[in-house]
Amino acid sequence: MSQLFTLSFFTAFLAAAVRLAVPLIYAGLGETIAEKAGVINIGMEGVMLDGAFFSFAGAWYSGSLAVGLLCGIAGGVLMSVLHGVICIVLAQDQTVSGLAINMFALGLTSFLFKLMSQGQSYQQVETFETYAIPGLSKIPLIGAAFFEKDILCYLLYILLILFTIFYKRTDLGLSHIAVGEAPHAAESAGIPVHLFQWTALLVNGVLGGIGGAYLVLVQLGVFTENMISGRGYIALAAVILGRHMPLGMFAAALLFGLANALQIRLQTIGVSVSPYLLAILPYAMTLLAMLGAAGRSSRPESLGKPYVRGSR
């Protein structure tokens, strides 16, 4: 057990946690933006799955990572546009729409993947390279975990900071918050509510799509059926636990990454607990976190309620 307590163990452990957390953070940021504007997208799982599949297909046929990434984004946006048509244009129930999108995405990607793979079980694409940032990556413990990453991960750091400033310091950010809190008040202040909700949902699709593509184009190089396996739902939990703010969500997603990394470590060093039980750890933590967050709601007041102009 002594191997548990070396610096290199912790460094590797933390690196694994960040690696597992990045897709969650992408999806979580997308979800934060949609929910701030009053649209809840339970379909994040489907958005990510679509992003994962189309990025794989794009990269496979073109041989280019950039094309793969764009295809992944398009796949994610496709799902969030579908959600927008149902929830914004038709003003239908957002939860039901989100669940439908998850099921639809699962069926769609599995079907297309079968067509594409033609019986072959294993096809791999090239993945994004990592660039160590000079200086920062040499910091003990956290350096390797946070600053020896790929370009998408660095982009994520920048987005987190930009969106934090957006909500705290800008006019547009304030207007986005107002749309989620009180759409009628926002409309009467001259804010085009539906336009803002559409913008937020498009960003939601872009980021969710990248979240799914990240698994394929950075981490695994392959697509498998239902490969998101609950990450979309964990991202939703991270948004709530992070009190609907980008940096809070970031911390919450890291926590889930740590839990996941921990269960993998425990399995590999052969702790005498059933691996199935260990695999539950991140999900159990999600539940516990939700219990802990109960009663301190930061939920936008009009989240999930369709806005119809002129109604009360």
């Binding site: 006019d171 547009l172 304030l174 207007s175 918050i177």
Partner: peptide
């Protein structure tokens, strides 16, 4: 029925959605 965002301050409610501003920061 007042059209105010209850989660915000008086100041934020007044400036809300007003685009007559230079730059993007408040």
């Amino acid at each position: 029925h007042f059209m105010l965002v209850e989660a915000m301050t008086v100041f934020e409610n007044i400036i809300l959605g007003d685009r007559n501003t230079k730059g993007i920061f408040i």
